[in-house]
Design a protein around this nucleic acid. Structure first.
Lengths: 166, 166
DNA sequence: TTGATGGCGAAATATTATTGCGCGTGTCTG
DNA sequence: CAGACACGCGCAATAATATTTCGCCATCAA
């Protein structure tokens, strides 16, 4: 399944679809240098193998009224596995929390949150996050502005590293 | 242009396309309860108005060999606007840096980085980031595991807040 | 050499996107 | 209060795209 290695065409496909997930299969085929049918087969294979997890429209949060973006560093009282996963489960249930990553170091978790305004976030912070079981400390930092926001894979590096094989 | 307010159908469209950016227009139309032609027109309008910035395949970084994910908190020596934007420009040029946000508080920037392995990241850290002009301090935290990663807009909250109008 | 395997591309078919047009609804205006 | 207008819908027709089918060629192993 995921044991199959990717060749340079597969990587091009992934790079193109990461950049434009709604590209037509004909267009994609043209760009990667093969015809449409095998191109579509490769895409399906990449999807099935889990290289492509899904497709998403990038929606402008600000235009929709989500003006505020906040990073929250969370420290827990207990780092027992069951307590960690309990907290993670909580995070998954909070709509304002868009990302939750467990970290090494002094802080246990970093959360990326969005909110329509500061008071909404403050309410969430005091009523939900700080009151959650096992939460010892929360330090928040407001995002003043974004300079770069391109989640995903740096395919330029991939090509350099793999020029040897395939 | 973006002065036009969205009705509940528009919001449904955005929510659906955020969840599945490759949904066919017929399927989308069915889900939001209108026929295909007006649905497509709405999508185009939303794109042109900037509500939809683009479409992207979600690629599994781990499968592609990017095992390491790191948050880096960066402090600068000077917070003069020109120095800030110089640093931001640098970040845009670094492939390993996928996100760069300016923060309030003690730290000036938070960077989300990916790398194939720890040594690649360490090389980047010491050779590039720490050597960059104006960088005063960098604290890094390795991501141990991800509990939630859904960049985007929490449409469930949007609906609750807007049930009044439209 | 020969048979099996895998991937390609041309052609045919099924889906989907897109355009053009007439209809109904709500609003503004005389 | 009627009529003109603007807006957005949906039907039907057309264009583009996706998807299947099938035969060909290269590679590899026996």
């Amino acid at each position: 399944m995921s044991g199959t290695r990717l060749d340079s065409i597969d990587r091009k496909i992934l790079a193109e679809l990461q950049a434009d997930g709604r590209m037509t299969n004909v267009e994609l085929a043209k760009r990667v240098g093969i015809s449409a049918p095998p191109c579509l087969r490769r895409v399906r294979t990449l999807e099935d193998a889990g290289y492509i997890r899904g497709y998403h429209a990038e929606v402008d949060a600000r235009e929709l009224g989500f003006e505020v973006q906040v990073f929250a560093m969370v420290g827990l009282q207990s780092q027992a596995e069951s307590d960690l996963s309990t907290f993670e489960e909580r995070c998954r249930g909070w709509s304002l929390v868009r990302e939750c990553h467990m970290l090494n170091g002094e802080v246990d978790f970093i959360l990326k949150c969005v909110a329509p305004d500061l008071s909404t976030f403050q309410t969430f912070l005091t009523q939900d996050l700080l009151k959650a079981d096992n939460v010892a400390s929360v330090k928040t930092s407001l995002v003043i502005r974004g300079a770069k926001d391109e989640p995903g894979v740096p395919f330029d590096i991939l090509e350099n590293r793999l020029t040897r094989d395939a």
